[in-house]
Amino acid sequence: MNIKFSAAFAIVMYLVIPFTLGDNNYLIGLVASALIIAGIAVAWALLGNLGGMVSFGHAAFFGVGAYTSAVLTMDHGVPVFVALVMGGIGASISSIFMMPALRLRGPYFALAILAYAEIFKILAVEATSITGGAGGLLSIPTLPVFMGIDFGTKLGGYIVILNIVCLTLITYHFIRKSTYGLALKAMHDSEMATRIVGVPATYLKIVMLLVSAFMTGSIGAFNAHYINFLEPDYAFSGSWTIFPIVAAIFGGYRTLSGPVLGALFIYLVDQLVFKSVMPQGHQLILGAMLAGMIILSPSGLLPILTKFFAPKKNIKKAEGQHA
């Protein structure tokens, strides 16, 4: 993501959208929800791109983060903003249970994570004393007033999630730039080559899993305080896995901007168009898009567009850069 693009993105998200849509609770809420998906998509892409790990289990991190934060604020009086961080930490801790799966190669890791996500979902339903069971938790505290700004409004919540997404992007950017990022990038196709020069491959993967879980968990926590309600089927819903994967694949998961733009586009189109055309089962189109993208262009829409618009010479470079 270059500077011009980042600046344009920041201006649109921080200035244009709040001032044009700020009064419309429905629309600003919609964009905020899209940003929730975007944040998870970035976290998913971080793990997929820099860790080389495809996860079908991010719903688990989302759910654990949500419940951690909700329970801490409701039962232990922890301030909401602190609880958002705790939600992330909770998700990271839950990811520790998944670490044995890091020994497994690609597809087996994906399947193991899917199984873990199911286990967490069942546990959430069963642990009624903590999660309220299938009945759910009601009246989770809203985001508070802080430095004179009421973050409990739809617009306030939008600003908070926007900040969270920007923080995840900045973190991703710096990890990618670091020597860790270089080593992780290389591990993708040449793990032996990296290990033989001393890269502790498993340790790096563990770090990426922790970071990705933290990001997803704190976003789950934000969501809990944004909608003030939780039940296991919702918090651990497969949607929290499906949407981000579609967004990241659609936008190109090996880029920084891809997952964010993909999420904004996918979520808004899904809610505004697909949902109105077919009120039930509109995720069908998401599934079809996912399948289509994997066949046509697994590295996202960007390479297709570049192919059409860029002069032929530059194609190779554009694909190689994964910018």
Binding site: L182, A186, H188, D189, V197, G198, V199, H322
Partner: peptide
Amino acid sequence: RTFQIPQPMHELTVRENLIVAQRFG
């Protein structure tokens, strides 16, 4: 050590290969 069949670190430049080796080795 080296391998009989060279094992460069993919997606990195030559210099980046050596940076990773220095950093972690």
